[in-house]
């Protein structure tokens, strides 16, 4: 039951003119697992997430989310599938003409398949902003926040509906190391408290390392090491190179690899 794939790619190819952004990519993510997708700039990481969300249609191959083939669905029916997927876009992509509160409320007010009584919208928004530790910024505009706070607000906007699948596109790109760490900590908190399947795209191996080996401690409100066995969240690593999947497996197998493109990612750690 828990091994039912939530997301499945079957030989998915996405082309832009003559460039293959994704080449015959296949993988599946099961409920409750974390996937860390590593890849150099331009390797197709963003395209992979957008295809999973149905924002980009594959040129060939099939994409299934929650058992539905989404490549074949018209845009109107995709909205319902998308309401069960939260996405953090690379540069946050907050709506600059709306306040933080309105940004987070947007999906509750506009997504028809989510029935949230109007009176509950703003309490729910406040609660979500509290969860990402952004209480008190409701009335601010995105341009008034720092990069890290914008990232938090965008996570709140993606997570306000408590979707069972969360996609993060380069959550730490452009952030200083300390802020980057707090964003990954928030991502782990979201994963462990809400128990959602999580796909994280990144080119920083440290992010993947944290996601694979740490868990959220709700009593102390911080991260603690998750030792092998019961507490360790299942984390699979994937490495993309020019649209191809060149590695899929756990952290130990990744670190045992001798392929120079793959070792480049974890060598950067020290």
């Amino acid at each position: 039951m828990s091994d039912e794939p939530i997301l499945r790619f079957e030989n998915v190819t996405v082309r832009f003119n003559d460039v293959e952004a994704l080449s015959s990519l296949s993988f599946q993510a099961v409920a409750g697992e974390s996937r860390v997708i590593l890849g150099a700039a331009g390797s197709g990481k963003t395209i992979l997430l957008k295809t999973a969300l149905g924002l980009i249609k594959p040129d060939s191959g099939r994409v299934f989310a929650f058992g539905k083939e989404i490549g074949a669905l018209p845009e109107r029916d995709l909205f319902q599938v998308r309401s069960r997927i939260g996405m953090l876009f690379q540069e946050s992509a907050l709506f600059d003409s709306l306040t933080i509160e309105e940004n987070v409320a947007y999906v509750l007010e506009n997504q028809k398949s989510i029935s949230c009584p109007p009176a509950q919208i703003y309490p729910r928004v406040a609660e979500t902003l509290e969860f990402v530790e952004l209480g008190g910024t409701q009335e601010k505009f995105p341009s008034e926040l720092s990069g890290g706070m914008r990232r938090r607000a965008a996570i709140a906007r993606a997570a306000v509906t408590e979707p069972p699948l969360m996609l993060y596109d380069s959550p730490t790109a452009g952030l200083d190391p300390i802020t980057a760490h707090t964003i990954i900590a928030l991502l782990i908190k979201e994963r462990d408290v809400k128990r959602c399947t999580t796909l994280v795209v990144t080119y920083r191996y440290q992010d993947g390392n944290l996601i694979a080996n740490f868990r959220y401690n709700p009593k102390q409100g911080n991260l603690e090491p998750a030792f092998n066995g019961t507490g360790r969240a299942r984390t699979t690593f994937m490495v993309l190179r020019e649209g191809r999947l060149v590695f899929e497996g756990d952290q130990d197998r990744l670190e045992a690899s001798t392929d120079p493109y793959i070792t480049k990612f974890f060598k950067q750690r020290e």
């Binding site: 924002l55 909205f79 709506f95 600059d96």
Partner: peptide
Amino acid sequence: SMKVTEQIDAMRALGTDPIQK
């Protein structure tokens, strides 16, 4: 600017049709 900062994609992801909105 909304297009290049992925706000249009975000709109679609959050359940609105950018043409309609």
